[in-house]
Design a protein around this nucleic acid. Structure first.
Lengths: 347, 347
DNA sequence: CTGAAAGCGCTTACAG
DNA sequence: CTGAAAGCGCTTACAG
């Protein structure tokens, strides 16, 4: 511990060259005689030399570091995006560091994100679905390229990669309608992330398209938590004309809905069908296994890295101006939580 | 985007002082006239100045940055530790950056961790339960302080904060024995993390203490996955004298065991009791809710940060030599998955 | 209380 | 192909 780390100068001195030559030998960018290169490389290995990314970047070069700011880590969907970002970064020969912004704690920390990640990294990926208004706007004047991921809350000029919410939700509800359901409830999440309103729009448009009038009594306000799904479902099912199917704005709430239905003695899917959104890992372990909508999380992460790499590499404002939005389609994951409506109940 | 970021020199020039004075005014370490300080602070805010942590640290100072290396992000237990580390770091007025080592991908990346985090941060917390032999040893010669968390695989001289496995497991099995169970099965995880053997040791000692001989037929080898719990249970229950209780080395496998028992038409806990380890969030959402052992994850993270802070601050080798291991007790979380053994089955 | 000098580890021009 | 110089943004001594 506390051993002074070995520097480029140490390596250079050990083989009697300048740091310049050692630098060139190690980076392989410029011409160096094969013999010198070998000696330097061997010495570096010998001494356990590892370049200091700070110094590299300070001098205006690349640190070969990408930064990822995330709001929270608790969901498996977040973990999946992070994993794919990490893989894509490694693939590109760079390293990733993650900063947890903890957006739910109130104070928007954009200043800290910019300071920490902006000073360290060659580019920043923002995975802050819950970032309050104005936070992302701050990054429009970043000194390094920034790409936002899966952000729906407000308008932003930031280049963006995100997964569809509207079409997926619409398809889910169409699937339910195809099963004969007419009284389909929707449990919304908090508006906080902007994704729930998109999902609700898909729900309503699917109903309208099928000639079904969306009614307030079948729309319940939740907040993305399992208990909200539970409570909403209790209220929904207590009506004189309860829904025969429930579409929740995320899996957590769909799972809570299933808890409630079981407690009410109702069978899933025979009595009531349930559809979720997100495809969290818990969705495939519930009983019955939950049908849900899946965003292409891995591809979202991968594309975000590609986009930021293009921005780090390119100086052509024209090209970049065209490369500002990638929206990836969702898909339906049909499992066991939905069934055709029963004739009696549907009337 | 790409706007040159404002430096200390810009701030200094705008109020006609040297960078030295500006630095002192902003850091508040040395004496500066109140008037100058005010002007500098105002100018810094005006210009949107944020200090470059690289430059700070390069000159031998503190970057006020702590690094956390994690192996994976998928489990809620990991997320909980990370969350508490993050909170404790913020509490100390520092910032945390996370590096995902992806230990399962084969090649131990200690070199990269050291290079990236060691170059950037004032200290490193290692949360690498699955790190193969030798990886942690590398960090014993780190240029910055390093603390390991929840590592059990091999011996290491690194200072460490970790949660108990043995006593918790022993208590869990004693709980089962107290319920009258005699044929208690154990499903082990992979030895990879070193935690499973500890848990098995607790299991065996509890049995012996109660005068019950541990038998091979009731010990099944798993790998921490849900499907391993499922398969192991199928085999375990197919015996002529099947267990009346199952203790799994983690919650995933306990949940898999419950899946298998349900599929066999057995009731939990009436026919078979199940006990897990970890208290993952899924444990409280299963049906019936899973009894399990809980490590004090938040406290582990918090203590790890305190320990690394002491190491960053102190230069007294004597003091540090005494401050090298904190082991925190686990506790039982008793829910609904265990019941007294039925007289007939226990014979 | 304030400043001029030097340097952290590396790299980008510019010379040879 | 190799080197001497200068500088990235900041801070630690050392002077005044």
């Amino acid at each position: 511990m506390s051993r002074k780390s070995v520097t480029l100068a140490d390596v250079a001195k050990s083989v009697n060259v300048t740091t310049m030559t050692a630098s060139r030998a190690l980076n392989g960018t410029d011409a160096v005689s094969a013999e010198v290169r070998q000696k330097v490389v061997a010495a570096a290995k010998d001494l356990g030399y590892s370049p200091n990314p700070l110094a590299k970047r300070l001098k205006g070069g690349r640190a070969n570091l990408l930064g990822l700011a995330v709001g929270y880590l608790q969901s498996s969907a977040m973990a999946e995006i992070i994993g794919s970002v990490n893989a894509a970064v490694k693939q590109a020969g760079m390293e990733l560091i993650i900063y947890v912004a903890g957006s739910e704690l109130g104070a928007p920390k954009q200043h800290e994100i910019k300071r920490v990640l902006g000073g360290l990294c060659d580019g920043i990926v923002l995975l802050l679905p819950m970032a309050p208004d104005g936070v992302l706007a701050e990054f429009e004047s970043s000194s390094v390229p920034v790409v936002a991921v899966n952000y729906w809350r407000t308008e932003t000029k930031l280049p963006m990669v995100r997964g569809d919410n509207y079409v997926g939700s619409r398809s889910a509800v169409e699937h339910l309608i195809g099963l004969g359901h007419r009284r389909i409830a929707f449990i919304s999440g908090s508006d906080y992330t902007g994704q729930s309103p998109e999902r609700q729009r898909g729900y309503q448009d699917a109903l309208k398209q099928a000639g079904i009038k969306p009614v307030k009594a079948l729309m319940s306000r939740g907040d993305f938590t399992r208990s909200a799904g539970f409570e909403s479902t209790k209220v929904l099912m207590a009506q004189s004309k309860p829904p025969t199917a429930i579409f929740a704005a995320n899996d957590n709430m769909a799972l809570g809905a299933m808890d409630a239905l079981k407690e009410l003695g109702l069978r899933i899917p025979e009595d009531v069908s349930v559809f979720g959104f997100d495809d969290e890992v818990a969705a495939k372990h519930s009983y019955p296994r939950l049908s849900t909508v899946r965003q292409p999380l891995s591809e979202i992460g991968e594309q975000a890295v590609q986009m930021i790499l293009r921005r780090i590499g390119s100086t052509s404002a024209d090209e970049l101006a065209k490369d500002t939005l990638i929206e990836l389609p969702s898909s339906l994951v049909v499992r066991d939580s939905c069934a055709p409506v029963r004739a009696l109940l549907s009337s």
